Amino acid sequence: EEPGTYGVALYRFQALEPNELDFEVGDKIRILATLEDGWLEGSLKGRTGIFPYRFVKLCPDTR
């Protein structure tokens, strides 16, 4: 996996908008950016989108 910051999904998130990223509990999401209003941008399984930061637990930065 690529170096960078990752978050592990604490809850299932179902995308409601085309720019959102849906995921299941336990998915490991690569964090790409921190956005305003409590949203993160991340990538998972070749898809990129935004999601609420409270749905993931950030992992320590590992290489």
Rank of each mutant, 00 (worst) to 15 (best):
F55V: 04
L58Q: 04
Y11Q: 14
V8W: 02
G46K: 02
D27E: 09
R54W: 09
A9G: 07
I29K: 00
L44W: 06
E41Q: 12
F55T: 06
F13C: 05
D22Y: 12
F23Y: 03
E2V: 10
L35H: 12
G38H: 07
A15L: 04
I31A: 00
E20F: 15
V8N: 03
F55P: 01
P52M: 07
L32E: 08
T5E: 04
P60G: 13
E2F: 11
L10K: 08
I31P: 01
Q14K: 10
G46T: 03
T34W: 10
R47G: 04
L32R: 05
K57W: 03
E24N: 13
R47H: 09
P52K: 01
G49T: 01
T5K: 09
L40R: 04
L32W: 02
K45R: 11
W39D: 04
E17S: 12
K57P: 02
L35S: 10
F55R: 04
V25C: 08
V25H: 07
E36C: 07
L10W: 07
G26S: 03
W39C: 03
A33S: 14
G46I: 03
E41I: 07
E41T: 08
G49P: 00
Y6P: 02
F51L: 06
E20I: 04
L10E: 04
L10D: 03
E2A: 05
F51I: 02
T34Q: 10
E36G: 11
A9P: 02
E41V: 08
L10Y: 01
A33I: 03
T5L: 14
I29H: 04
G46R: 04
G26A: 01
V56R: 00
C59L: 13
E1H: 01
K45S: 09
N19H: 11
L44V: 13
D37S: 09
D61Y: 08
S43R: 08
V25I: 11
K28P: 05
Y53Q: 15
D22A: 15
F13S: 06
V56E: 00
L21W: 00
K45P: 07
D27G: 02
F55S: 08
W39I: 05
K57G: 05
F23K: 11
I31Q: 12
I29M: 02
V25A: 12
E20V: 03
L10I: 14
I31R: 00
C59F: 13
L21D: 00
A33F: 03
D27A: 07
L40W: 06
C59Q: 15
T62N: 14
W39M: 12
F55H: 10
A33N: 14
E17Y: 10
E20D: 04
E2W: 14
R12Q: 01
